[in-house]
Amino acid sequence: MSQPTPRPSLLTPDRILAILTKAAASTILLMLAALLIILTLAALPSIQTFGRNFLIGHDWRPNEIQQSLHAQSGQTEIKILPPSFGALPVIWGTAVSSFLAILFAVPLSFGAALFLVRATTRWLAEPISFLIEFLAAIPGIAFGLWGLFILCPFLQQHIEPPLNAAFRAIPGLTWLSTTNALSGHDMLAAGLILAIMIVPIITAISRDVLAAVPPAQVQAAVALGATWWQTCQEMLRHARSGLFGAVILGLARAAGETMAVAMVIGNSNRINLSPLAPAQTMSSLLVNEFPTAGDLHRSALMEIALILLVMSLLFNITARYLVVGKPPQVQTP
């Protein structure tokens, strides 16, 4: 045996800190792993039972229902429909409500971002930026309350009756109309509330992306005699990948938002083409059904949560690569 060489003590403050920080950093990786593994395990019974049909099935019916059919012979026949778990209605609900949100939010956000970058002085841009960032920090439950008590009644009384009549009257748009009673709790309300929620995110990120456009780009356009709007177009063109990233981050937030949507969307598990009909998103379905779900039903809901997780990962990874070198100023949930 050789002489023991003097070794530095294992427990100097420097070493302890090095180990602790490394452990904490590793925790972050474990957190993502836990999300993916636990949700997949919990969703496994559903994945094994339903397979591919889960994604393309359009009936979400957690309990069996009795349907009375009037047979041709004149007597009533009772048919029992077994439980069925098809996620298409809620995938549809999430896709359409997010699409509506983007449709309403993007023009407003880009307009405001251009205004903040190109049209105001610092003393005006700063407080406006602060208010928009504050709007981004307001929790979903507050938007839900506003939607429920202000937006939905307003839509029901003033917007939806003429809108539905217009859809019905204009040939080619009749598929957008509904024969349901107009409640104000529907896809349109969800899209509008989501739009208000994602406007601050898209505005803040596009403002940063536009502000990062090299001044030479703008000056060159001005020197060539471009108008204010033409220079703006040049900036938009130059920053397009970052702007696209901002939109994707908005989309990610809209698709994952839960409370505000659950409070205004009307909660109906049916696919309906009309934006004036109630619908359901993946996250609002979880809020409505999870507390009372039995075993296979819960596993099916876990699979919905897994789809939601994978979707948000894809959106966020894409956006991160698009908004190059510009970390978002606003934390998205």
């Binding site: 972050i28 999300l35 919990a42 698709a255 994952g256 999870f290 997780l309 959106f315 970390p327 949930p333």
Partner: peptide, 21 residues
Amino acid sequence: FVCDVLAGVPSIVVGILGYEL
């Protein structure tokens, strides 16, 4: 990278993880 991605995970999914664990 994972920090940025986790900041964008819908909070309801985190709630469901809490339920399971």
